[in-house]
């Protein structure tokens, strides 16, 4: 156990966790925001979807910066999951609303 508790090992685990948070959680959030833009931009559907994707890349960059800057990996995971969940729920609600 002590091997996992040494400051060096803990640092490594925290970095690995952040990388995963950036790749998975960050991508999920950028993707969900792109979906939202596609649904919310006051344009014809295809135009909004296209702009949403292309702006999505630009949103991903600051998300990544934040993920690696915030105080702990746990914080990064927490906020990323919370915001992607919220954005996904909102998108789901919007799609459901327009279908009904």
């Amino acid at each position: 156990m002590s091997k996992f508790k040494s400051p060096d090992a803990r640092h490594r685990w925290s970095v690995a966790s952040r990388v995963l948070a950036a790749a998975l959680g960050g991508y999920a959030l950028a993707s969900a925001l792109a979906v939202l833009l596609g649904l919310l931009l006051p344009l014809a559907r295809a135009q909004a979807v296209s702009l949403g994707m292309d702006l999505g890349f630009l949103l991903y960059v600051p998300i990544l910066l934040w993920t690696f800057h915030t105080r702990s990996a746990a914080r990064a995971w927490g906020w990323l999951l919370l915001w992607s969940g919220a954005a996904t729920l909102l998108a789901w609600w919007l799609v459901k609303g327009s279908a009904a």
Binding site: A30, S31, A34, G38, R45, V49, F57
Partner: peptide
């Protein structure tokens, strides 16, 4: 970034 097209279409 396939999600927006998948959701809309």
């Amino acid at each position: 970034l396939p999600a927006p097209v998948a959701v809309a279409y």
